[in-house]
Design a protein around this nucleic acid. Structure first.
Length: 187
DNA sequence: CCCTGATTCGC
DNA sequence: GCGAATCAGG
């Protein structure tokens, strides 16, 4: 809601009477106390005579706060990598450039597993933004010995997309189960 | 923890 | 200009 003349007048009046920003926000409605405080400052009303025992002025947060927010946004909005970096380190023999995933598999809502509903045999392939309520795991049956279902195991452990000839170089990874996987065609 | 106002800065 | 997020304090 906009700051109409009436609302501004009421704000001035109440502020002059010594009501707190949140109290004023409550009376005005449709605004937060932050909005009230911001408006008060823009109107140049800050520093009331009453209740003027404010302590020393804070230095200046400025950069720290901003950087923090930027970091948060980055974490929140940059596409999460698929696959588990920690596992990658475990299973890979040689460092490989992490290739961007194809499409995310769509798991029917009913089949989705949250961290709470994961069972021993559930594929732990993460799907979606961990920050989101929609975040879930694949939940299909795991390949024995692996944390993923067949499909996602191939996805997770596939060799670099950069084709290495036609040779069938089978690099032992971890555990016998993986050898079977890597021998098959990559996804 | 509740509250207070003050400040910064993306929108 | 607006106000959420954040800060600093009571």
């Amino acid at each position: 809601m906009a700051w109409t003349d009436e609302r501004v007048e009421l704000l001035k009046k109440l502020w002059g009477e010594g009501l707190s920003a949140s109290q004023i926000a409550g009376r005005l409605g449709s605004v937060t106390r932050n909005a009230v405080i911001g408006k008060v400052h823009r109107l140049g009303l800050s520093g009331r005579a009453t209740t003027s025992r404010m302590k020393s002025h804070r230095p200046r947060p400025r950069l720290a706060a901003n950087n923090k927010r930027i970091a948060n946004n980055k974490q929140r909005f940059t596409p999460a990598t698929t696959g588990n970096p920690a596992l990658r380190a475990l299973y890979q023999v040689e460092q490989e450039v992490y290739s961007p995933p194809a499409e995310e598999m769509v798991i029917p809502k009913a089949e989705r597993k949250t961290i709470q509903t994961l069972t021993e045999c559930s594929c732990r392939w993460p799907i979606g933004d961990p920050q989101s309520a929609e975040f879930h795991f694949c939940g299909k049956n795991k390949v024995p010995g692996l944390p993923y279902c067949d499909f996602h195991a191939r996805r997770a452990f596939q060799p670099p997309q950069t084709r290495r000839r036609e040779r069938e170089v089978v690099e032992p990874m971890v555990g016998g189960a993986i050898e079977n996987l890597s021998r098959k065609e990559t996804v």
